[in-house]
Amino acid sequence: MNPLRARVRRPGRLAAEASALLIAVVVAFPLYWMVLSAFKPAGEIESSEPRPWTLAPSLDSFRHVFGQQEFGRYFLNSLLVAGCVVIASALIAFLAATAVTRFRFRLRTTLLIMFLVAQMVPVEALTIPLFFLMRDAGQLNTLGSLILPHIAFSLPFAIWMLRGFVKAVPEALEEAAYIDGASRARFLWQILFPLVLPGLVATSVFSFISAWNDFLFAKSFIISDTSQSTLPMALLVFYKPDDPDWGGVMAASTVMTIPVLVFFVLVQRRLVSGLGGAVKD
């Protein structure tokens, strides 16, 4: 069924497959090493003869990580931030994407261009004004100061990507719904929303990642209330440039990476097709 594959000669294909496997190993190696180091006992991590396996896996590094500070709490904080961002941006983007794909109104093209341009804005450059904005809004030191900007920053891309999904729902369906006497709101939430849901999930990956990974905002906005800290900040506590606690860093990294991985694996099908849609539009 793969046209390319059918005609590839055998030795060539074997070579291709061998190199694919080899590359897969290389690409996966950093992750493997991360997990491995997280499970290595203390003495083995900082050894001048690093081994690609361990005979005595231990949870010491994890215990250390969760014992130090309130790592569990930071984990929940991160989850809360990412969760709020995902839900809020998905809902807002869904409405906006519906507006720009299923209605015709003045400034529509202009708005679309704005959404596109908004994706280009270097978030980091806005840290300065956002800091003052959050201060004036009394949001510094709260998770709100992380949630709000991330909603804003993930919206343009989410809208852009969702457009394809909303467009894909045939207009006939909409017409039929109205003929059946459905209100606009009913169509929106009970017909369109479920149909676009897969796309929403794919879109969410990006907002989830941007919120989950955030390092700069957490560093700049969470000033003194450590109970509001998030994972990337906690991770860097173990990473002291002078004397990094590699075991702790790797264990914390593992803990931080796993939710994203799980999320990715769950939505990867939607993601790939969604990307196809977003990218081609």
């Binding site: 996966a28 950093p30 992750l31 991360m34 991770l235 994203v260 991985l261 990715f264």
Partner: peptide
Amino acid sequence: LAALGAWATPAVTGSTVW
């Protein structure tokens, strides 16, 4: 799978791991 793993890795952890 390997590529998805790399993709999913947060920038902070990716940096420290490398």
